[in-house]
């Protein structure tokens, strides 16, 4: 459950486009200081949800309070306390990184001196100081993402929205982006809501995850809770007497099956439950030669709740991103 007070509260948030229900009665509670992930494939309604929370889209139905303000009735107040890093690259290519940051600062009415200090500090943080005076059109994808991050932080937001912050980046760059986000979080203690279709990202960086599918939130919890919810860790045991071991496990209420010369079973809260099971086995004179505990992956969690694997959805969004990048280039 949320730590501290609520940064984002949504009730029955819905967006309908004609006959398409993009977001379907979404409820959210994100606590102050949380790093909250919306996980789901392309078209699940993540971006639309963020759009409504960031006052870009008007909800068809439902309410949302962001930073204590209603997104429909007090959008201007919401805009003051949030920072947004959209999916697209929004920096002006004809301007330098520095000029982009100064422009953003002026949109927030930040006084010039303060803006200069802040821009320099942010560029330093995302390691773009050397390229501050270079036009954005010559930035690489990773550099652009970092600049977008800096732009979203220029107003020291209390709540930061990141829409697919690592989309279209290679693995190393993705890791780098996340290390910046973590540092920012540590330094400024803001609430972060991000969308992603990378399960590892949600798993690694989020304090809580909401799994979205077809406009609905199908499950919310910490990564741990989500994994536990599908029946615990997977334990593999290699014993000398398979039949006797199975019997002992059955009396403990565990249904183990033989697989490839080993016993395999799901175990809730394995780190505390496993020692007792081992004690019971040894007490019955069974030798445990080898033991392995593995966590279920988020992929299995996702499969459990949506009936689909997330991997299938991944390719299409990468393609869409590449297409947009090409379109941008067509401009010059």
């Amino acid at each position: 459950m949320p730590e501290g007070s609520a940064a984002i509260v949504a009730r029955g948030l819905t967006k309908v486009y004609g006959r398409l229900v993009a977001v379907d009665h979404v409820d959210l509670d994100v606590g102050e200081g949380e790093v909250f992930a919306l996980l789901g494939p392309n078209g699940a309604g993540k971006t639309t949800t963020v759009g409504m929370l960031t006052t870009l889209l008007r909800p068809t139905e439902g309410t949302a309070i962001v930073g204590g303000y209603d997104v429909v009735r007090e959008p201007d107040m919401v805009r003051r306390v949030i920072g947004v890093v959209p999916q697209e690259y929004t920096a002006d290519e004809d301007l330098s990184g520095w000029e982009n940051l100064m422009f953003m600062a002026s949109l927030y009415g930040i006084p010039r001196d303060e803006a200069r200090r802040r821009a320099a500090e942010l560029l330093e943080m995302v390691e773009l100081s050397r390229f501050a005076r270079v036009k954005v059109e010559s930035y690489s994808g990773g550099m652009r993402r970092r600049l977008e991050l800096a732009m979203g932080l220029i107003n020291s937001p209390r709540i930061l929205f990141l829409d697919e912050p690592t989309l279209g980046l290679d693995v190393q760059t993705r890791a780098a982006i996340w290390s910046y986000i973590r540092r920012l979080k540590d330094e400024y203690g803001m609430t972060i809501l991000f969308t992603t279709h990378y399960m590892e990202e949600a798993d690694l960086y989020a304090t809580r995850i909401a799994i979205m599918d077809r406009g609905r939130i199908v499950k919310v919890g910490t990564p741990r809770e989500l994994k536990d919810s599908i029946g615990g860790d997977v334990v593999t045991l290699n014993v000398d007497n398979m039949a006797a071991a199975k019997e002992v496990l059955r009396s403990a209420g565990i249904d183990a099956r033989e697989y490839d010369g080993s016993l395999v079973f799901k175990l809730r809260d394995a780190s505390t439950a496993l020692p007792e099971i081992l004690r019971a086995l040894m007490g019955s004179g069974i030798q445990v030669r080898r033991m392995e505990v593995s966590e279920p992956t988020m992929d299995e969690v996702y499969l459990e709740y949506t009936g689909r694997r997330l991997r299938d959805a991944q390719a299409s969004s990468e393609e869409a991103f590449a297409l947009r990048a090409t379109l941008r280039r067509a401009r010059s």
């Binding site: 959209p86 929004t90 953003m104 927030y108 401009r331």
Partner: peptide, 17 residues
């Protein structure tokens, strides 16, 4: 152009009316 490139979406989340 701002609309096509997504810049407008960014501008619309700032407190500028």
């Amino acid at each position: 152009w701002d609309r096509r490139l997504g810049v407008l979406n960014k501008l619309l989340t700032t407190p500028v009316p």
